[in-house]
Design a protein around this nucleic acid. Sequence first.
DNA 1: TGTATTTTCTACCGCGCGGTTAGTAATCTG
DNA 2: CAGATTACTAACCGCGCGGTAGAAAATACA
Lengths: 215, 215
Amino acid sequence: MHPNDATSAQVRAAKPLTITEQARRAQLIGVTIDLVARHGYPGTSLARIAEAAGISKAAVLYHFPSKDAVVRTAYASVLESLTEYVGAAVGSRSGASAVEAYVRSLVAYLRDHPDHTRMIVEALSEDTGIGDTPNARSRREAVAGLIDAARAAGDYRPDIDPQATAVIVNGAVDAIVSERLADPDFDSRHAAEELVTMLRRSLGTGLQDAGNPSS
Amino acid sequence: MHPNDATSAQVRAAKPLTITEQARRAQLIGVTIDLVARHGYPGTSLARIAEAAGISKAAVLYHFPSKDAVVRTAYASVLESLTEYVGAAVGSRSGASAVEAYVRSLVAYLRDHPDHTRMIVEALSEDTGIGDTPNARSRREAVAGLIDAARAAGDYRPDIDPQATAVIVNGAVDAIVSERLADPDFDSRHAAEELVTMLRRSLGTGLQDAGNPSS
DNA sequence: TGTATTTTCTACCGCGCGGTTAGTAATCTG
DNA sequence: CAGATTACTAACCGCGCGGTAGAAAATACA
């Protein structure tokens, strides 16, 4: 039996996790992110993961209960990293500034981590068996919350629909990221600024100050 | 040998295509759209297509040279239908009105054809072997053209970037469609109107009249 | 009718998949 | 050093995949 079959990492800290175990898990997660980014979910087989890590299939299944568990853990790892980054950027900001920080940080993060982007894109297109983790709905709710707060703060018009607007904003951000992925020459930073400008003009009450992009 | 191994339909009209042939091809395309919509590309096997059509695998491969050819043909059929619909809606319109017709008709079409939507979504996520057909780039260029024309006509501000804006608009439309797909209660028509309003406020010069949604 | 063509079937092939089993190195621990 | 635990390998299993071969129905045509 494998020593730790919990899906996510140190949940309930059942066993101390040996050095080897930690290293192998980290390595397997790394190569899996890489493989999913390069060949998509269906092209990422157990044999390929094992080969990329330089061990046998059985060794992979010694550290994880199944191939799906490897992929799910890799996905969770990516998502945790992204969430942390965006969370830090939005952080203590409020109102329209928080929404703009969300747009800018998400685009920036995904521009700098194309592998993670592919992983997330693959995960979002369901049928992969990863779909259960923090899904699109919760993301929409989070952004809708930011927009609603900006509206309540007087930064945004009172007559906008936060839910519909959240869907539109998320879609726009995703498209910018995807475009950047397909065409590295595409200036995603500039596109993000265009989007921020559009949001100010279409949602704003004209009362907030300009603010300036971070980095 | 199969009677017609051309990938798309009546190209070069090599043979007159018997009644049976036409009917089977149409049926196979139909069930394939359905299967891809329900189980995704990887879940759509030759055996499933055959079973859904009530014939054997070999019979399917008698009418098409490979499974991929079936799927590609089905995809082309869907795309042709959508293109025709949106093309008719945009039609003779010009300026901002054309952009708005694009947004509204695309959302409307995909709302009314969820199966086609799934098919397109699956095709867009590459690695399926369908990716070669009219891709995202040409779509972006088409929309950028509409936006640029609206700008030239004085409907849109002169300082916007048509390319970046096209990416944003397409992304927003796709997100509305996807949301509708995931949640049938989502009011995609309303969201499309929100988007149109946002585009007027953020891109418009304030000179054009309101216009009204079709259907 | 008889013959030619179109359409379909059953049976099979090789492959890569996720996963299992049994044994064996390697490492820790007393 | 000995025994237990950890970390691994080679070989195998059954399955569904896309695709093929050859024969047999169905249909068209004289």
